[in-house]
């Protein structure tokens, strides 16, 4: 059962990454596309907690790092999404089946988008992977933030429902 769940999550990530590189470039604004993999990780974090979301973030990030159009150092997106998954998982409301308010979901997605893209950009700065100026970087980060916030109401609730359905019974820690 847990194998099936894991496979389902992986499939979701794969679809997100594929859409990110095939469909969204056609509607991209200044070449910036929404971070679908990041939204998957946000949904996972809000429903399943930091550990699961961090592992999912690592997997999704690795996929983004290694899938064909990528040419940056592998591990950069993985690092960003691990942190995003952990942080978002931390603000999950405690208790089995409790649901975050819609405003909180959007706020979490916005914060996650900012954090994730900034972390990726910062790791690029440190490694001098592509040398980009900070104003350019900020512009890309903000556009990505707008994209992610726009898509959150459409995509995150269904994904949260999916993750909640496939969640094993949670052991109460309180």
């Amino acid at each position: 059962m847990s194998l099936v769940r894991g496979f389902l999550a992986l499939l979701l990530l794969l679809v997100a990454v594929l859409l990110q590189v095939t469909f969204f470039p056609h509607v991209a604004w200044h070449g910036v596309v929404p971070d679908l993999a990041l939204l998957v990780v946000v949904a996972a974090g809000l429903t399943r907690g930091p550990q699961f979301a961090a592992v999912l973030g690592f997997t999704g990030g690795l996929l983004l790092d290694l899938a064909p159009p990528a040419d940056h150092y592998a591990g950069r997106w993985a690092l960003a999404l691990v942190v995003v998954g952990f942080v978002v998982g931390r603000i999950r409301p405690p208790g089995q089946g409790s649901r975050p308010e819609p405003v909180m979901v959007v706020a979490a997605a916005a914060a996650a988008s900012f954090l994730g893209t900034s972390l990726f950009a910062l790791s690029g700065l440190v490694l001098q992977d592509p040398v980009v100026s900070v104003p350019d970087m900020l512009q890309v980060i903000l556009v990505a933030l707008v994209w992610d916030v726009l898509l959150t109401p459409l995509l995150v609730p269904p994904m949260m429902l999916l993750f909640r359905r496939t969640e094993p019974a949670r052991v109460s820690l309180a």
Partner: peptide
């Protein structure tokens, strides 16, 4: 562990 794995990969 995951952050260390990322650092290793990079």
């Amino acid at each position: 562990a995951l952050v260390l794995a990322c650092a290793t990969l990079i």
